[in-house]
Design a protein around this nucleic acid. Structure first.
Lengths: 164, 164
DNA sequence: CTTGAAAGATGGGGTGC
DNA sequence: GCACCCCATCTTTCAAG
């Protein structure tokens, strides 16, 4: 990792290409972004070293193999000292079935995304959380009945200020 | 894509390895799962062909380059005919800044995850959605103040029934 | 499952513009 | 900055045993 460099339109094209195809070859990438292989490869290396490319991952379509329950959960803590937030977050981070956790403003403290084998497993997970006394005051469960969209590809063009 | 095959423990190891490192070489993968390269490669190909491996993607740490606003949004539609859901979902799917959308049971119809340059951009997006008359009755905004966790790696061992 | 081999990709080097 | 060579090594893919 190093200081965040400015991104020009070619860097953006590189990021967009590897977001969509993480196993694209350096030659095909160079071709796609309109550079020759060497400078393209040097840019990619710089983006990786800067931590802008944080990793490469295969996406698994788990539903092809087995049904899975996805649940969104709102959580409010009983007390709001820094230590209470820290304890809660530390526990959450260690539970693999909790695949996302956002601290939010607006009525509740956290929104979590949980994946489990089924609703029973989800409820057992919740029960075990409540038993562990990690400061949960109230929670609310939204069972996901359909995943309309779940993008791995970020809309970089919309997120980055023009030319960097 | 083909029929869902059963997954044995070695398939699971392969999936876990490529989830964590999408650019691992076939030799290193074979070594890691305790197979020689050819059978390992054939298993991987089968997993890809079956659609269980749905793609390979680079993860971009956008925050290293520029600040980004993440927002969770609850949406309730005004009327609940199939056509109303379809219209809403069709519009949502075409908006890149809406990176996720879950249809849920429990008080509201949808929960959305939106990424935008800042809160202003988010609000403009919401305003444009309301103007488009796609049936939104009420919405509620949760501004994400901290992403505690956002895993790309699924807890396969917890999600799959023992031995397939 | 193993070995082996051909085709291609990678990660450099260097030169010149 | 870039393109256009070069090369040695590794990776991928598949045939044959």
């Amino acid at each position: 990792m190093m200081a965040a460099p400015k991104l020009d339109p070619i860097d953006l094209k590189i990021l967009n290409a590897i977001q969509r195809d993480g196993r694209i070859t350096k030659l095909a990438l160079a071709d796609k972004v309109g550079l020759s292989p060497t400078p393209c490869w040097m840019r990619l290396r710089k983006l990786e070293k800067a931590g802008i490319v944080s990793g490469y991952h295969a996406s698994i379509a788990i539903r092809v193999v087995a049904p899975v329950a996805t649940v969104l959960m709102e959580v409010t803590l009983a007390s709001h000292r820094q230590a209470d937030f820290d304890r809660f977050e530390r526990v959450i981070r260690d539970i693999p079935e909790i695949v996302a956790c956002w601290s939010v403003g607006g009525g509740v403290d956290y929104v979590l995304k949980v994946m489990a084998r089924d609703i029973d497993s989800y409820q057992r997970l919740v029960d075990s959380l409540l038993e562990r006394e990690i400061g949960i005051d109230r929670y609310f469960t939204y069972i996901v009945t359909k995943t309309v969209k779940d993008e791995t590809v970020l809309p970089l063009a919309d997120l980055l200020p023009p030319h960097s």
